[in-house]
Design a protein around this nucleic acid. Sequence first.
DNA 1: GGGAGATACTTAACATGTTAAGTGAATGCG
DNA 2: CGCATTCACTTAACATGTTAAGTATCTCCC
Lengths: 172, 172
Amino acid sequence: MTKRPADPTNGSAPAARQVPMRDFSRSLPMSLLRAREAVMRQFRPSLREHGLTEQQWRILRALASIEAAEVTELARTAFLLGPSLSRILRDLEARNLIERKTAKADQRRSMVSISKEGVKLMAAVAPTSEAIYAEITSRFGARKLAELQEMLGELEQSLAGLGAGNEASAEE
Amino acid sequence: MTKRPADPTNGSAPAARQVPMRDFSRSLPMSLLRAREAVMRQFRPSLREHGLTEQQWRILRALASIEAAEVTELARTAFLLGPSLSRILRDLEARNLIERKTAKADQRRSMVSISKEGVKLMAAVAPTSEAIYAEITSRFGARKLAELQEMLGELEQSLAGLGAGNEASAEE
DNA sequence: GGGAGATACTTAACATGTTAAGTGAATGCG
DNA sequence: CGCATTCACTTAACATGTTAAGTATCTCCC
């Protein structure tokens, strides 16, 4: 019961299987990674033509939809960690795609918003981006896509507050 | 038909919605990213305790299951780009977790394999890792998990050979 | 058998992911 | 008021993602 037969896809691995584990290529993290990569591969070339990375695009989109936001709020919306966001905002600001001004009430906070140039850039990128998304939807099926996203959301939910684990226990 | 009502979740954004797009937070790439992050968040602490990153762990697992492999093959299996793999192999070799020897027949290729130390490390990490995976499976449901992975695979399939696009057309 | 082209990596350069530490500004409380 | 904490970022340091170049081999065909 401690061993498992070798995966049929590599029929002749001689040894080194002391540690039985799930078939590597079928782990959930790998499945998610591969799927996401398959999707992003479609978008990157178009973004690249406009000098944008995936993350920069996420930020612009987030800003376009929420008008102005504090950095922390933006990080949550664009799903980026603070340090990444900090760097990217610095660069986007240098390119005049966003604007930043410190809040009056609380000098620690700064409000970020998209600039006119930023809006213009979005207008240039959005059509292609939407077309690609439509193509993906069409290929995979709109219904299935909705189902998939539903399941992904449930997965996220079911793991919420598991990794945070030590919420009120040890603290070291 | 060119406009869409604002998302109900941010009822009062004043302007800057010149570019209508899907609700940002519900795009497929974001769903996949969030789901993957929710999963990986569970594993990272344990890996970290053993001084391993997610990618390093992927490589060790891949090597443990296929015995020895060329770098290119390993890149495909562990789903890493060549440059990343090159760096990681350099580091893993320095830590004596893997071994490398150039192939006799073709001096360009090198065969990579896991070392005894590498196997030992895997043995130390695997139990926790499997336990976490079991917990995730249990929370989300084994059946649903299988379904999800099935859909992810189909998504990948349906996009195969779309981004490669220019396979035999333009060439710069 | 020799040189053009293909292969299998490796390096380089820049951007982000991830964790820890730093900085300046608010807050709470004695 | 005064000062320790907390907060909202920003920097720093190290690892990987991503694309483009570089290097050493190998292949093939004239």
